[in-house]
């Protein structure tokens, strides 16, 4: 039973990971990652970690990846155009990575191959996790509160829409790798382009920074 489950869900995880790599649009990569996480949750159950398995589904797949999908939708991220440099890099890189992986797998097989995994041999009760969190792991548990405060503050600081200082409504801009909608431009509140008019081809704009400074004026 256990070997069958391991190979089925390990296979799903593997397929999801390879699909993540192969797919070019980020939304498909994100959804493949969700599949990987689901398969891993089953593997965690096989390894007796029931609390972690459910946290994986609820928090990792259910909150973090949903956030990813929201942002991908918001940015309307689409297939990027490949450059020649990246094709060369891939031609060299994939074989090197495959070689390293084979080495690593061989190493693990030799070092840890002797220990069998018995399903049900070690089961972690949720109560035990709770006890550990408040006894042995009290300090890390409390310190993560600072981590969350940093995360929340940082996210709001960087991404929140601030009131427009120029008084002009945001114009629609085209994200280079996709077609935006007016709703998206408003949601991002992209500041009006200093060159005026709708942007057709957003070439790299090293001039945008001083132009921006002039547009901002001193009234900030």
């Amino acid at each position: 039973m256990h070997p069958a489950l391991f190979f089925i869900f390990g296979g799903i995880a593997l397929a999801g990971a390879i699909n993540l790599l192969v797919q070019r649009a980020p939304i498909y990569s994100a959804l493949s990652l969700v599949a990987v996480m689901g398969a891993l949750a089953v593997l965690f159950l096989l390894l007796g970690a029931e609390f972690i398995a459910f946290i994986q589904i609820i928090v990792y797949a259910g909150a973090i990846m949903v956030l990813f999908v929201f942002v991908i939708m918001l940015l309307n991220a689409d297939v990027p155009e490949p450059t020649r440099r990246s094709k060369v890099a891939q031609a060299i890189g994939y074989p090197v990575m495959a070689l390293l992986l084979v080495e690593l797998a061989g190493f693990f097989a030799a070092a840890f191959g002797a220990t069998p995994v018995r399903t049900g041999g070690y089961l972690v009760q949720v109560a035990a996790v709770g006890q550990a969190l408040f006894h042995e792991f009290l300090l890390p548990f409390e310190v993560t509160s600072v981590l969350f405060l940093v995360g929340v503050t940082g996210a709001v600081l960087l991404a929140a829409r601030r009131e427009e200082r120029h008084g002009a409504a945001p114009r629609a801009t085209r994200v280079h790798a996709g077609v935006p909608t007016r709703a998206m431009a408003e949601a991002l509140s992209v500041p009006p382009n200093a060159m005026g008019g709708a942007v057709i081809e957003p070439a790299p704009q090293p001039e945008s920074e001083p132009a921006h400074a002039r547009a901002q004026g001193d009234g900030r």
């Binding site: 792991f137 890390p140 310190v143 940082g154 600081l157 920074e209």
Partner: peptide, 25 residues
Amino acid sequence: IMIFISLEISSISTYVLAGYRRHAP
């Protein structure tokens, strides 16, 4: 575990601070 968590606190706050002038590309 503590090293990892505190390393991340320090790193994440620095990531945000590096991007503080968020209107500057």
